[in-house]
């Protein structure tokens, strides 16, 4: 295996040297408006000169004309005209499943970095406290907030609400949320994460992944493997959990309250990893590289694609070679091909 690979930077636009013709002037707003559906605009480009449109996000208004302030696609909802940026910081929306990192412990709240413009807030009242039943928070809880979560800790949570200034409020009031253990963290652009009903998946090879809507990804050892080693008290709960399907079901939250009593001990805030076998560690690194490759190829990241990328990557016995550009490109190509085959 090579020690180092140094390549020359490639010019992506090499094969199209001619300038793209800019035709702001001739193409009046009237025309642009008609070109329905997916029209892509660049910053400073005239979107419309029709003053009836309301100016939304990503636009600015000058001399009775509306211009785009970002590069993205134009969206029209009734009379509201806005431009949705192709890239940019994650914008939290209620209900998003996100992965975040604690940046600050404050009075009755934690600040969490979720890749937004502002850090999100996690109130002490919106986490599961150790000690069984859904109990009220007390002053002693306030004093030992660092024993639950401290700076640097990773957690997954749901966006509970958005404040008027755009910052998010999180909650972890479900057993699928909470502190993250037994794995590794990586970031991808949030624009590549495809929103779906479920954002945590069990992948082949005894590995789970949480693809946060904010582009923060957590790869870890699957929980099922641990069921054989957990203590007798949690076994009952685990069995109940296994009997219901492993994924998230609507309505499961109401059932889980009983389970909460048994599982919601200090264990949920433990920093200790389980013992993880080398083969699982190797599989995790393979998924790590596959997700990086998908992000490199600008492919939207879904469970399907991660699994397909994983299968494509099995052709490479040496996972370390997956960090090369050619290998990443071929994986993306394989993913696209197998998607075409499935139709």
């Amino acid at each position: 295996m090579s020690v180092i690979s140094i390549t020359r930077p490639t010019n992506v636009y090499d094969d199209e040297p001619s300038d793209i013709e800019m035709s702001d002037v001739e193409e009046s707003g009237e025309l642009k408006k008609e070109s329905a559906g997916e029209s892509i605009v660049t910053p400073g480009e005239l979107v419309t000169d029709d003053p009836v449109w309301m100016k939304g996000h990503g636009t600015y208004f000058l001399h009775d004309q509306t211009y785009s302030s970002v590069a993205g696609s134009v969206s029209r909802v009734n009379r509201l005209l806005s431009v949705i940026p192709l890239r940019g910081r994650y914008q939290a929306e209620t209900g998003d499943h996100v992965v975040g990192r604690i940046t600050e412990v404050g009075p009755k709240r934690w600040k969490v970095d979720i890749g937004c413009k502002q850090d999100a807030v996690l109130m002490l009242g919106s986490v599961n406290l150790p000690g069984g039943v859904l109990r009220r928070k007390s002053e002693s809880d306030e004093l030992q907030m660092r024993n639950f979560l401290k700076e640097g800790d990773l957690l997954n949570a749901e966006v509970q609400s958005i404040f008027s200034n755009g910052s998010a409020s999180l909650h972890t009031r479900s057993l699928k949320y909470g502190k993250l253990r037994n794995g590794i963290f990586l970031k991808v652009p949030s624009s590549l994460v495809v929103k779906s009903k479920n954002h945590s998946y069990n992948l082949p090879g005894n590995v789970s992944v949480i693809v946060g809507v904010n582009g923060y990804v957590w790869l870890s050892k699957s929980k099922q493997g641990a069921s054989s080693t957990t203590s007798a008290t949690t076994n009952k709960a685990q069995a109940a959990f296994d009997s219901s399907s492993s994924g998230y079901n609507p309505g499961q939250g109401s059932v889980s309250i009983t389970r909460l009593e048994e599982e919601s001990s200090w264990e949920i805030y433990s920093d200790k990893n389980e013992s993880i076998s080398n083969s699982v560690r190797h599989t995790i690194t393979r998924y790590y590289n596959v997700i990086k490759a998908l992000a490199f190829g600008e492919l939207g990241i879904t469970e399907q694609r991660i699994i397909m990328g994983y299968e494509a990557s099995l052709a490479y016995e040496d996972v370390g070679s997956l960090i090369d550009k050619e290998a990443m490109e071929s994986i993306c190509q394989d993913v696209i091909n197998s998607e075409k085959m499935r139709g």
Binding site: G152, D153, G183, I184, L186, R281, H282, T285, N289, K292
Partner: peptide, 24 residues
């Protein structure tokens, strides 16, 4: 800053023989 769980996972991986680096 990494979380303690991340740190110990990384450390345990790197100390294996041969080391398992995050990007392998």
């Amino acid at each position: 800053i990494l979380s303690p769980a991340e740190r110990s996972y990384l450390y345990d991986s790197l100390i294996q023989k041969p080391p398992i680096r995050p990007d392998s």
